[in-house]
């Protein structure tokens, strides 16, 4: 009985915060098939790790942490295949869904710029763009707050260069 209740609660929280999964998949998987695979992996890993959530941090912080760990490890496993794929896979899908070409170009440029960053920096920039605090970014990634700050200055500078 308790198991069913726990599963229900977990699924409810997951359903409420599933945007996190989609955003991470959008960044780390480059086509619809890979995104679906990665989202399944992340959801499964979240389910397996659900007992490790003790409520010390926010549910979303825990979710970002598990989801990013899964995405990064998954990326390593699939790197060989990913390297042969075009970085434009992601942007093509956005084109199909977006009506305004100017908005599309800006989004595509941002995604392409982020995709040019090292994978760990991609995680940091995702959390930054999601407007998480340095403390939360530090909790999720395991690097110190000051290191987060230093990296973000460098990442933003690089992103601006790439976008300009």
């Amino acid at each position: 009985m308790a198991d069913i209740a726990a599963k229900e609660k977990f699924l409810e929280q997951l359903e409420q915060n599933q945007d996190i999964v989609h955003k991470i998949c959008g960044l780390y998987a480059h086509n619809t098939h890979d995104r679906k695979d990665l989202s399944q992996d992340i959801i499964c890993q979240l389910w397996k790790a659900r007992r490790s959530f003790r409520g010390d941090s926010k549910f979303t912080t825990w979710m970002y942490r598990v989801a990013l760990n899964t995405a990064l490890l998954n990326l390593r496993r699939r790197r060989r295949r990913l390297r042969t794929e075009s970085l434009n896979g992601n942007h093509d899908n956005i084109t199909a869904e977006t009506g305004d070409p100017e908005i599309h170009l800006r989004i595509a440029a941002l995604y392409e710029a982020i995709n040019r960053l090292p994978e760990f920096d991609r995680a940091i920039v995702l959390l930054y763009l999601e407007q998480l605090s340095y403390t939360e970014i530090s909790e999720i990634t395991g690097i110190s707050e000051s290191n987060v700050g230093v990296r973000l200055v460098r990442i933003r500078k690089k992103l601006r260069q790439l976008l300009e």
Partner: peptide, 16 residues
Amino acid sequence: LIEIWKQGNREILKNA
């Protein structure tokens, strides 16, 4: 950057 990111998310999340 944050604004573009949000717009991108809206597109990604629309059907996801």
